[in-house]
Simulated scan of single mutants.
Amino acid sequence: MKSPEEIVHIKALGEAVSVVRDAMRHFVQRRLREQNIDLTFEMLQVINTLLERGEINQQEIANLLNKDKTSITYLLDNLTKRGLVVRVEDPNDRRNKIIHMTEAGRRVTDLLIPIIHELHAQVSKGLSADYIKNVTRSLMVIKSNLEEE
């Protein structure tokens, strides 16, 4: 059983994680608006995943972003309408679609990369690489603890 003081700290941790995620989302959305880029934070996450991982299937994107497949379908539909990605049938499994970035998608990444770099710079300002590694490691332990059944 956790002490009342420990419970207060655990609650504060949950609130802090939520506040930081929201602050990151707002930071990115502000930059996207300032540059008249018609994308949401979630669309940027998908594009960034494709940029980092290359052509992957929808389920892999969902797993990497910790989102359900339905949410990813909606995001991919919107990115497809904007001409930034296409779904291509997987030659090994016709039920599966591989997501490819289009030329327009690659061009928009040229606008997005500076925003991502600015976000990383802002997030890490005043923090050492070791500190960031330790916080990240701690958060991953918490995630693992929550996934235990």
Rank of each mutant, 00 (worst) to 15 (best):
T102M: 08
L13H: 11
L111G: 00
I142F: 15
R87N: 02
R53C: 15
E34F: 01
I115W: 07
E52G: 12
R30S: 05
S3W: 11
I99L: 09
E103L: 10
E34R: 05
L32W: 08
T109N: 12
G54R: 02
I142W: 10
S144G: 07
I113E: 14
S3Y: 12
L76K: 05
E42W: 10
I98C: 14
L76V: 04
I61H: 12
A129V: 12
Q122K: 02
V123W: 02
M24V: 01
A104H: 09
M140N: 13
R82D: 03
N66D: 10
L111Q: 08
V19F: 07
I61E: 05
S124K: 15
N96F: 06
E55Y: 05
K11S: 04
P4M: 09
M43C: 00
I132G: 06
K81Y: 09
V8F: 13
G54S: 11
V86E: 13
K67V: 00
D22P: 01
M24E: 01
H9N: 11
Q58N: 08
R33P: 01
I7Q: 09
V28I: 15
L139G: 09
R25E: 10
A23W: 03
I116V: 14
K143G: 04
K81H: 08
R25A: 01
L64V: 07
L76H: 08
P4Y: 11
T49M: 14
V17L: 14
P4I: 04
T40V: 08
V108N: 07
H117N: 14
V20Q: 05
R25W: 06
A121V: 02
K125H: 14
S71L: 07
I56D: 13
G83N: 02
L146C: 11
L39I: 05
V135I: 15
A62C: 12
L39C: 04
R82T: 00
N63F: 14
I116F: 10
M43F: 04
K143V: 02
D22L: 02
H117R: 13
D110M: 03
H117D: 14
K69L: 13
S18V: 01
E55Q: 10
E6G: 01
A62W: 14
I113Y: 13
D110W: 05
T49Y: 14
N63E: 15
L75A: 02
N145T: 05
H120G: 08
G105M: 07
V123C: 06
S3T: 12
K81N: 05
E34C: 00
Q59A: 13
H100I: 00
A62G: 11
R82N: 02
N66T: 02
L65T: 02
D130T: 13
N92T: 03
R30D: 03
K97L: 03
V8L: 15
M24K: 02
L50V: 06
S128Q: 15
S124R: 15
I115T: 03
H120L: 13
I98T: 04
S138E: 14
S138T: 10
N78D: 04
V141A: 12
I99W: 13
Y74T: 10
L84S: 01
I99E: 08
D68V: 00
F27G: 01
N92W: 11
Q35H: 03
V88K: 12
A16G: 06
I115V: 11
L112F: 09
